[in-house]
């Protein structure tokens, strides 16, 4: 992986700021109450509060897989945007989510995504979703995203 420490501090801060603005301007991410906890160098951590509106199984109060997908997708896109090669845009090509267990009702869900490889036009991402139990992930995901470079870059 390309180290972001090669670049001057200001550039890295600008990029982080840009990525944060990118996430916070997404209407649906705002609607789900997502907050960007950490970002930089191809890694993003985004979390989402427990909300009874997003329950998928009324018998158990467990959050719907679809809301977890939205979190994973946003987090994957954020990780791509924060990559050291400074893309100007990204879109999901495919995303696979494995649900290992039900998220515990009442707890925040936190996704960590890592953009572990990029080509000229494709970014590869791995992600994990956790609740308060750090040792037992709720879900994991792998995805491919488009990697749009600035013209001439």
């Amino acid at each position: 992986m390309k180290a972001a420490t090669d670049s001057p501090m200001s550039t890295e801060n600008d990029r982080t700021k840009l990525a944060r603005q990118f996430i916070e301007a997404i209407p649906h991410s705002r609607a789900l109450g997502m907050s960007l906890d950490e970002i930089g160098d191809g890694v993003a951590i985004i979390s989402m509060p427990y909300d009874t509106r997003f329950v998928g199984n009324p018998a158990t109060g467990v959050i719907h897989g679809g809301a977890v997908s939205a979190l994973m997708d946003t987090c994957g896109g954020a990780a791509v945007m924060s990559h050291g090669d400074a893309p100007v845009g990204t879109a999901t090509i495919d995303l696979r989510i494995d649900y290992m267990r039900a998220a515990t009702p009442g707890q925040r869900i936190r996704a960590r995504a890592e953009c572990y490889h990029v080509t000229r036009s494709v970014a590869f991402v791995r992600a994990t979703a956790l609740d308060d139990d750090d040792d037992n992930p709720v879900a994991s995901a792998t995805g491919a995203f488009t990697f749009q470079r600035a013209k001439g870059a």
Partner: peptide
């Protein structure tokens, strides 16, 4: 949003 699409499909 890609997540909305995923949720809709699921």
């Amino acid at each position: 949003h890609g997540g909305v699409t995923a949720a809709f499909l699921e």
